[in-house]
Amino acid sequence: MSSADSASAWLLVVLCAASGAYCLRQVRRSGGAAAGEAVMAFGMALMAVPLGDRGGWQALLLAAVFCGAALHAVWLLRAGVHHAHHLVGSLAMAWMALTAAAGYGHGGGPSLVTGLLLLYFAGYVLLGGTRLVAAAGPAQGAYPPAPTELTRACRLAMGMGMLAMLMMM
């Protein structure tokens, strides 16, 4: 791994850990959704740590954590379909951990599943970026009451982190 790749990976670790810390602060106010986002952010930070080749057991442990997060996301779906993103994110992280455990990735191009996840998160980042810009602009009343701009920025950062991790596969 080159020093530029290592620096990028560590920046992604810091970004995801900071997002996780912010989400933990929001747990009391928002309930289960922020807890799921915190688990995802800290898990993304762990997966982004540049440790070279991870052992299979570490990747399987991360996959188990993300499968648990996916079950939590399924539980959150009771409150509405807007929680489906948590499910997609959890399953994407489990996918990346399982492919790391199996030794796939880093060569041969993306699989169909990875390609679909790349498309989903690219769209999520673009949509999240436009919403963040619109919320900061003069037409603040255009959306129904939504999370603060900092929460939107946190979600956007996590989406960009997920996109970066998928592109590195």
Rank of each mutant, 00 (worst) to 15 (best):
S90K: 06
H82V: 11
L12I: 09
V39L: 08
L126T: 12
S111W: 04
A64V: 04
G105N: 11
C23N: 15
G55R: 10
E149M: 08
F42T: 05
A33T: 14
Y124N: 02
V65F: 02
V14D: 14
L126N: 08
H83I: 03
G108W: 05
Q26L: 15
R152N: 06
L112K: 07
L117G: 08
A35H: 04
A73N: 06
A97F: 00
G89I: 00
A79D: 13
M96Q: 00
L156N: 03
L163T: 08
L87Q: 02
A18T: 13
G141Q: 05
M44W: 02
V39N: 00
V74F: 07
A7M: 14
L24F: 13
G80S: 07
P145Q: 06
A102V: 05
A100I: 02
G137N: 10
A70F: 04
M96E: 01
M162F: 00
A92W: 01
V125K: 07
A153W: 03
L150A: 09
A100H: 08
A17E: 11
L62S: 07
A35W: 09
L60V: 05
R152I: 04
W57C: 01
A92D: 02
W10A: 12
D5M: 15
A97W: 00
A136M: 09
M1G: 15
M96A: 02
L51C: 07
H83L: 06
Y104A: 15
A34L: 03
M44F: 03
M168S: 13
G89N: 04
G32M: 10
S6T: 15
G115T: 05
L117S: 06
M165Y: 01
M1R: 14
L46P: 06
G89Q: 04
